[in-house]
Every structure is written in structure tokens, then in C-alpha cells.
């Protein structure tokens, strides 16, 4: 047996499990969403579950909320990440603290961040109590609604807190590998600080920034836990809606739950493709 075959033979069990889980799981999910389950005698696939989802009055508002959260979180994170990376590549007071904060929150899971936001920003939270304590507001209820609110401020805050370091680390690495020489050349050619940022730094970091931010976009679109903890009840985001259907005691809700999950994946994929196409144009035309 050649070396290569030996390697494949050793990998085979693990690969089989992987393929079974991914392809098998996906196939079962798609089948279920199409009401196709030969085991219990359903052999004629149909689109009933999808129709049911699209007819739900909550579907479009939920989709809108979802898109709003994903786009705003990604955009805000990207802007703040670029700003902090630009700050952090120069020596300044507090740089070490900022570097620490950056690397510190990378391994903290979202659920911890979400609970933190809940503790801090809810009307019964620490900041509201503090504001009430020092007399800034006369009742805790006067504290602005930042959690489970219609503008999803709490959710966006959580995503931004978590994703700024994620994008920022990538931007910083790119900035450091580029060095200062491009900007130095532009400067001696007469470019002002703003022109150097707009015509040199930004176009140079854009490809990497867009590639990493598309991950953030896809993640914030499909994430369940954060909007579940911090989101409003109506309209809930699509993943929250899907879980709600899935955990419904009525087993007839399973196919629409699967259908919605697959719709989320499809919308997410379309969004990623659009984003990539758009960002390629941005990068090229600059």
C-alpha cells in the first residue's frame, strides 16, 4: 500500500462520520422541509411547509429585523475596527490596555457577552440603577430601553463588542504587513492626511476587511442566542422564530421549522454572494 493510500485509509472512518453528519443531516433536513419522509409513508414531496412560512404575518417583519441587525452590526463593527486598528498601530498611551482588551474578548463566548449586556443595560440593570442612584433619572423606567427594544440596540451592542476586535485584529495585521512606505510615498507626492487615508490606506486594507466582515455578516444573520436573550418578542429574528417552531409541542410544526432554517441558510448564502460581488467592485473601482 502506498503512503498516500495509507493516509486515506486512516482518515476514512473520520471522513465517513463527517460526510454522514453533514450531507446526511442536511439531506434529512431538506427532506423534512419538503414533507418527504418515506419511513412514515410520506413519499410525495411538496412545498407546503415553505408556503406556510411565507404566509406567516411575522415572516417579513422578522426578515427585515434580521437584515437590519446584520447590516448595522457589520457596518458599525467594520468602521470601529478600522478606527481602532489605525490607532493601535502607532505607539500611544493606553495602547497596551487596548491590545489587552482586544485579545481578551476574542475567546469570550457570545452568551457571556449577551448576559453582560443584560446586566448592564436593562432597565433593571446596573447602569440604570447607578443613574437612578446618582439622581440622573427619577425612576428606573426612565432609563432608555436598550434591551429587548425595537431598535435592537442591545443585540447590536453585543455584536459590536464581540466583532470589533475580530475584524480589528485582521485589519491591524494587514496594516502592519503593509508598513508605512506606501503612505510615505503618497505624502511626499503631496497627499494630505485625509487623502492618504482615503486613497492609500483604505483601498489597501479593504480587500482583507471585506473578506473578514462577510463572515461577521453571515454570523450576525444566522445567530440565535443573542437575539433570543436580547431581542424583542415581536417581530423576533428568523432564527428565533425557527427555534420557536421547532420546540413547539405540535409535531406538525417541524416541517415549517426545517423550511425556515433552510430559508435562513439560503438568504444568508445569497447575501454573502451579493456582498462579495459588491465588495469586489468597491475594491476594483477605487
Amino acid at each position: 500500500m502506498s503512503e498516500r493510500w495509507k493516509i486515506w485509509a486512516m482518515l476514512a472512518p473520520a471522513l465517513l462520520v463527517l460526510i454522514a453528519v453533514f450531507v446526511g443531516g442536511l439531506a434529512l433536513g431538506v427532506g423534512r422541509s419538503l414533507n418527504y419522509m418515506p419511513i412514515i409513508g410520506l413519499t410525495a414531496p411538496n412545498l407546503d411547509a415553505y408556503r406556510q412560512i411565507l404566509r406567516m404575518p411575522e415572516f417579513l417583519p422578522s426578515l427585515a429585523t434580521n437584515l437590519y441587525i446584520a447590516v448595522v452590526s457589520t457596518a458599525v463593527s467594520m468602521v470601529l475596527a478600522i478606527a481602532s486598528a489605525l490607532l493601535m498601530r502607532r505607539a500611544f498611551r493606553g495602547k497596551r490596555l487596548m491590545t489587552f482588551l482586544f485579545s481578551f474578548n476574542l475567546p469570550i463566548p457570545h452568551v457571556v457577552g449577551a448576559i453582560g449586556i443584560l446586566f448592564l443595560f436593562a432597565q433593571s440593570g446596573a447602569i440604570a440603577r447607578l443613574a437612578y442612584g446618582v439622581g440622573l433619572i427619577s425612576r428606573p423606567m426612565e432609563f432608555p430601553v436598550l434591551v429587548n427594544d425595537p431598535h435592537a440596540i442591545g443585540i447590536i451592542l453585543e455584536y459590536v463588542w464581540k466583532e470589533v476586535p475580530f475584524i480589528g485584529v485582521v485589519v491591524l495585521a494587514v496594516l502592519q504587513s503593509l508598513g508605512d512606505d506606501y503612505e510615505a510615498v503618497a505624502q511626499t507626492l503631496g497627499a494630505t492626511p485625509w487623502q492618504r487615508f482615503a486613497t492609500v490606506v483604505l483601498p489597501l486594507i479593504m480587500p482583507a476587511t471585506l473578506s473578514v466582515s462577510v463572515l461577521v455578516l453571515a454570523f450576525t444573520f444566522g445567530e440565535f442566542l443573542v437575539p433570543y436573550l436580547l431581542g424583542q418578542t415581536y417581530p423576533a429574528t428568523l432564527p428565533v422564530l425557527a427555534v420557536r417552531l421547532f420546540t413547539d409541542p405540535d409535531l406538525n410544526q417541524r416541517p415549517p421549522a426545517m423550511a425556515l432554517s433552510i430559508l435562513i441558510a439560503l438568504i444568508s448564502a445569497v447575501m454573502v454572494v451579493l456582498y462579495m460581488a459588491l465588495s469586489r467592485r468597491v475594491v476594483r473601482s477605487d
Binding site: 512606505d181 506606501y182 510615505a184 510615498v185 505624502q187 511626499t188 507626492l189 503631496g190 497627499a191 494630505t192 486613497t199 492609500v200 483601498p203 489597501l204
Partner: peptide, 15 residues
């Protein structure tokens, strides 16, 4: 940016 002394490096550094 206003000194009028233009620098060219070993690496061409074209944008």
C-alpha cells in the same frame, strides 16, 4: 506633503 522632496524606494510601491 508641501516640501517638494519626492521619495522613491527600493520597492516600487505602486498602488
Amino acid at each position: 506633503e508641501r516640501r517638494g522632496a519626492v521619495l522613491m524606494f527600493q520597492n516600487h510601491l505602486l498602488f
